[in-house]
Design a protein around this nucleic acid. Structure first.
Lengths: 149, 149
DNA sequence: AATTTGGATGTTATAATGTAACATCAGCTC
DNA sequence: GAGCTGATGTTACATTATAACATCCAAATT
C-alpha cells in the first residue's frame, strides 16, 4: 500500500539527511509521478501540476526538478520512452538496486521489478567481456500491458 | 570479417526475396551504418551520405529509409540513444535473435551481443508474471567503452 | 513505345523533447 | 538589512521525429 503522504514525508527526510530540500514544486512533481501508474513526460507533468495544484511550472524547471529527483533516487528516467516514473522503492530500503522496467508502449503503464543478482551478474559479464563498463544497469522492456494487448 | 560489399549484396538478395528493393539511397544509408562502429542519428546519416556519396537525402527520407531497413531486419533502432545501428548478423543466419546492446554513452560505440536463451526466458518470465506482454526483447545497456572510460 | 500504377522520394510545416545562458527570487547567515 | 547560495524564471534554440501532401520513377501492361 503506497500512501502518497507518507512517501512524501519519507522523501523529505531523505533530502534533509542529505542537505537538500524537497521544495513545494519538487513535491508537486514527485506527487504527480507517485499518483500515476504510468510514466509521464516532462510536459505531461506540467499539465498535471497545473490541473491538480493550479501551479504553473515552466518546462525548464520541470526538467531541473526531475534531474534533482533522480539525483535523490526518487525518480527514474525511462530512456526508451523519454518519460519519468517514481522509484518503486522510496518507501522501503532497497534504494538503488538494479531494476527491470516493464513499459507499455501503448499507454506508458510501468511496472518496476527488482533484477535477480544472478541475472545482473550475467549481463555484467557480457559487458566486461566486450571491454565496456556498465554505467547504469537499468533494463527497459518494450511491452504491452494487460489492458492494451 | 565484415565486408561491406558482400553484406550489401546479401541484403539485396534478402530484399529481393521479400519483394522489396534496396534502392541506391537505402544502400547509402545502410552502408553508412555498416561502416561505422558507432550508432548514428538520422541527421548524422544525412551528413555521412553527403560527405561520402555527395548525396542529399532529406531528413524525412532518411527516417523512412531507416524504417524500411528495420522492417527488413537490417538495422536496429537504439531507443535509449535515439540512434541507429546495422544488425550484427546480416552476414550470417541468426537473423532476428534477441540481442543485448552495449552502447557507449559518450561516443555511441555499439556492440551487439546475442542473448542466452536462458536469460531471455527469465526476463520473459518476469514480464508474464506482471501480466505484461513483451513486444521487443532488445536490451540496451548504458555503458562506457574502453576508450571513453 | 506509351500508359498506368504503386512504391519511393521530396517539400513544407510542425510537434515533442531537451538544454544553454543569463536573470531573478527566496530563504538563510552574519 | 546585506550578502550569499540554491531554486526558479525567461528566452532562445537544438535535436529528434512525424503528418500531409506533391512529385518522381521504374516496372508491368497495353
Amino acid at each position: 500500500m503506497r500512501n502518497t503522504d507518507s512517501i512524501i514525508r519519507r522523501a523529505e527526510k531523505l533530502c534533509a539527511s542529505r542537505g537538500t530540500r524537497l521544495t513545494k514544486k519538487r513535491k508537486y512533481v514527485l506527487t504527480g509521478l507517485l499518483e500515476s501508474d504510468k510514466a509521464l513526460s516532462a510536459y505531461e507533468l506540467i499539465d498535471v501540476c497545473k490541473e491538480k495544484y493550479d501551479e504553473d511550472i515552466p518546462a525548464m524547471s520541470v526538467y531541473r526538478i526531475l534531474e534533482f529527483l533522480q539525483s535523490e533516487y526518487l525518480v527514474h528516467k525511462l530512456n526508451t520512452a523519454s518519460k519519468y516514473a517514481s522509484c518503486a522503492n522510496i518507501d522501503d530500503d532497497k534504494v538503488g538496486c538494479y531494476s527491470q522496467f516493464l513499459i507499455c508502449r501503448s499507454c506508458s503503464k510501468v511496472k518496476e521489478v527488482g533484477l535477480k543478482p544472478s541475472m545482473m551478474a550475467e549481463l555484467q559479464a557480457t559487458v566486461q567481456d566486450a571491454s565496456f563498463k556498465l554505467v547504469n544497469p537499468q533494463l527497459e522492456m518494450n511491452c504491452l500491458c494487460e489492458d492494451c494487448v
